[in-house]
Amino acid sequence: MSVVSAGWRTLVHREILRFVRRPRNTFLPPAITNALYLIVFGVILGGRIDVGGDVTYIHFILPGLVVLGAVSDAFQNASFSIFHGRWNEYIHEVQTAPLSYTEMVIAYVVASALRGTLIAVLITGVGVLFTNLIPSMTPVEFAHPVYVVAFVFVITLLFAGFGVIGGLWARDFDHLTVMNQFIIRPLVFFGAVFYPLSTLSQFWQSVSLLNPMVYMVEGVRFAFLDISDISPVVSLAVLAGATVVVVAIDVWLFKRGFGLTD
């Protein structure tokens, strides 16, 4: 007998089908965008940027791009799916079903985290392809594969959890755009994706530590390259704790009917 209900499995299945059947909307854009990032920053400009040590710039930014793609898509998937369901009211199909509120939330979070994980794999694949195609480059390797899996697992769950809150909070499509453009994107760009923290003054390094994205980028960079300005164990613990808190908030909001019931 399965430990999860058939209803939960159905909702997860439905959520996965929703993004898998639209690869032109879900998988193609990040593949193209990240290929462009790697061409411009990695290949064209990369040779002129020194990030210290023996690490080339394309190897340095790849972990950050993986984080950027994974969390953006995990967030976007959960927020869009819930908001679109609210907008067209078909989320009522789920709300009126005999699923517990926890099952509903976990289903949305798991499916969205899976999409984020697939995007992470896709971007890594693009990076591997580039570094193998260019003879002067060292192919991408994973210094700590277990950490790669652990970090991608936690950060996609965390941002899927944030996405649930965003999907419940949004009142129109503009709100979704606002969240992506004015909250997620600045956090990412100031999250040490494109530069090492050590290039900043001590003051800005301290300020940066308030940005949760820094822990994600540094953690995944450690997993890829074995270099990090922050202990990966600390990063993983902070992010895992945050994930538990955010998902608990999601469940509480569903129980309260926030954005869902009159």
């Binding site: 159905t10 199909e93 079903a97």
Partner: peptide, 25 residues
């Protein structure tokens, strides 16, 4: 009264999803 149906899937699939939420798979 209001049409609140999942727009992403053909109607047969919408029904199998609805049945699934009730434990019928």
């Amino acid at each position: 009264q209001e049409f609140n149906v999942d727009r992403f899937f053909p109607i047969r699939e919408v029904l199998t999803h609805k049945a699934g939420y009730h434990g019928i798979t």
